[in-house]
């Protein structure tokens, strides 16, 4: 597969991909991209105290609940992955 080739051709890049979760590559599909985006967003919301407060006020929940639900959502923010084509 081409992706294998690319990784073996450039071990440094492979290292970077392993190190920086979320870094895209030429074969990133929309699902992977969106999932990374959503995970980044959830992590950002939990990491910024004013944003958690903002959501908590809008939703009528406690900040602890918002943080918890956001972290839970990071597991699969965009639903299950699309079925792979076999060919």
């Amino acid at each position: 597969m081409s992706s294998e080739l690319r990784y073996t051709a450039n071990t440094q890049l492979e290292h970077l991909h392993a190190r920086y979760t979320g870094t895209g590559h030429a074969d990133t599909n929309i699902y992977e991209w969106a999932t990374h985006q959503h995970r980044d967003m959830c992590a950002s919301i939990v990491g910024h105290p004013p944003l958690t407060s903002y959501l908590a006020i809008a939703d009528g929940e406690s900040i602890g609940r918002i943080k918890f639900e956001m972290t839970e959502r990071m597991l699969q923010p965009c639903g299950p992955p699309p079925a792979k084509d076999d060919d």
Partner: peptide
């Protein structure tokens, strides 16, 4: 920046004050 894999979100210390763990949201 408050990033997903850069530690800073959680802190835990050893009760005897010998070490500290700093963790990110992921990994």
């Amino acid at each position: 920046g408050a990033r997903r894999i850069v530690p800073g979100q959680y802190l835990a210390t050893d009760p005897k004050g010998r070490s500290v763990m700093i963790s990110a949201m992921e990994k």
